[in-house]
C-alpha cells in the first residue's frame, strides 16, 4: 500500500512552480510539440483492421443471416435479391461499427474499408442497400498529405508523406478455415417436418423412408456448413460438427 500525501508548498517552492509553469509556456511557444492532423487537407493513416464502412461480396455470401442476427443495433436487415436470396443492407443511422458482422461472416463476404468521414444530408439516405455495398463508394476528399502517428521511445512522432491514402483493404479471408458439416445427433427424435430439407441452400439434405420411419440424410460433401438447418430444426437435434 502506498500512501499519497501532498505537502503544502512553501513560498520558495511556489515561486519555483510558477517559474516552471511559465517556463513550459515559453518553451512551447518557441518549440511546440504540435500533434495536429490538419484533417481536411491531411488524413491520418488508419490501420488495415480499421472498422469503417462495410463492403459486401455477393459471390461469397452463403445466405446464413448471421450478420443480421449478430448485429447488436439491428442495423443489418436482409433484402431479397432477384435470385431469391437474401443479402444484407446496412443502416448507417444505426450501425455502431462493432464489426461483429464481419467477424461472424464465415464466407468472408463482408469486409471493412477505411471510410469513416461521411456526412449525410438526409437520414433516409443512410440506409445502404446491397447494390450499393458491392463497389467501393466515393467520398469527398480534400487530403493531399498522409499523416502517420508513430510512438518511439522518446515521444509521439508525426510522420507526414505527400500521398493520398488508399482507403480500401484487400479482402482478408478468415484466418482459419474450419470446414463444418451439419449432423443429426438424435435421429430418433426427428418428427419428419422437412424444415431442414426446405431451408438447405445446397440441397445436401434429403429425406428417405426406411422401415416406415422417415429419416433425414445429410450429404457431407455438398453440405457447406452454413448452419441454417441447425437453426431451423424444430427439435433442435441438428448440430454443426467438424468435417
Amino acid at each position: 500500500m502506498k500512501k499519497v500525501t501532498v505537502q503544502d508548498q512553501s513560498t520558495l517552492e511556489k515561486a519555483k512552480c510558477h517559474a516552471a509553469a511559465i517556463g513550459v509556456a515559453m518553451k512551447e511557444s518557441i518549440y511546440p510539440l504540435t500533434a495536429t492532423v490538419q484533417y481536411p487537407r491531411q488524413r491520418k493513416k488508419m490501420p488495415d483492421n480499421f472498422r469503417g464502412y462495410i463492403l459486401f461480396d455477393p459471390e461469397k455470401c452463403i445466405n446464413c443471416w448471421e450478420c443480421a442476427f449478430i448485429c447488436p443495433a439491428n442495423a443489418i436487415r436482409m433484402k431479397e435479391a432477384p435470385n431469391k436470396k437474401y443479402y444484407p443492407t446496412v443502416d448507417y443511422g444505426k450501425c455502431i461499427f462493432c464489426h461483429f458482422c464481419i467477424d461472424s461472416c464465415s464466407g468472408g463476404a463482408l469486409r471493412t474499408t477505411k471510410i469513416h468521414d461521411v456526412a449525410y444530408k438526409d437520414m433516409d439516405d443512410m440506409v445502404t442497400l446491397t447494390e450499393e455495398m458491392i463497389e467501393p463508394p466515393e467520398i469527398i476528399r480534400e487530403d493531399k498529405t498522409l499523416v502517420e502517428y508513430q510512438i518511439d521511445k522518446k515521444d509521439l512522432q508525426i510522420k507526414k508523406t505527400r500521398e493520398v491514402d488508399y482507403l480500401f483493404v484487400d479482402e482478408v479471408p478468415p484466418s482459419v478455415e474450419i470446414p463444418m458439416v451439419s449432423q443429426c445427433i438424435d435421429g430418433a427424435s426427428c418428427i419428419g417436418c422437412h424444415v431442414c430439407e426446405q431451408v438447405c441452400e445446397s440441397g445436401a439434405i434429403s429425406s428417405a423412408i426406411a422401415n416406415g420411419v422417415m429419416r433425414m440424410k445429410i450429404d457431407t460433401d455438398t453440405c457447406t456448413g452454413c448452419g441454417l438447418c441447425v437453426k431451423e430444426c424444430s427439435m433442435q437435434i441438428l448440430k454443426l460438427v467438424r468435417k
Partner: peptide, 17 residues
C-alpha cells in the same frame, strides 16, 4: 495563434492557409 502554439495546436488557419 500563440495560445494554440503553446497548446500544441495550430489555431485558426483554413480561412486563408
Amino acid at each position: 495563434k500563440l495560445c494554440a502554439r503553446i497548446q500544441w495546436r495550430v489555431g485558426p488557419r483554413e480561412i486563408v492557409p
